[in-house]
Amino acid sequence: MLLLMVGLLSLLQAPWVYAGDEERKLEAVFIGRFASYIDWPDKDRERERFVITLLDDNPFGKLLDDLYRDKRIHNKPIELRYANKLEQVGETDVLFITLRNAAARLAATEFAHKNGILTISEAKGFAESGGIIQLDFVEQKTRIKINHAAAVKSGLKIGAPLLSIATVLRGDKP
């Protein structure tokens, strides 16, 4: 009976990112790796944990929890939070946005600017409309677009190694 229960649980339990879902794995990795190249100069932000918040749908299943369980960013352990609405986003260092509506994304980026939060999304036009890092997948390769002005506006400094591999928007032009 125990075997049966284990089997049924394995059949119905939410996984997941399956083995070949490279996009999802790379997105999960990039969230933390990007953060490691960002400098948050605001000393008032000192928190014991480095906080990453997902806003709206969670496409990663348990992958982020599994990946970041034993990781540290800026020498801090990582706390993952999941929010369905902007109002649920509290203090956070990184906001990964999966909102589908442009207006909702804009509200989230404005919130992030005011609170010195790194915003990341794969929504088209995200960087141009005030988001800081946009992930694109073009012909099965990852591309990074960074709105440097938005980062400055949020009080963030982006390290040169990250800028060197990205398309950098200064103002609203690439």
């Binding site: 083995a19 879902d21 790379l26 790796r33 599994d66 990946l67 997948f137 390769k141 591999i165």
Partner: peptide, 24 residues
Amino acid sequence: KTIQETNDYYSRPLDQLLQIETQA
């Protein structure tokens, strides 16, 4: 295995990550 592969990616340089071919 998925976690292992993701952990492996986490340790790679950024420019190498950009060369990984994603699924069609």
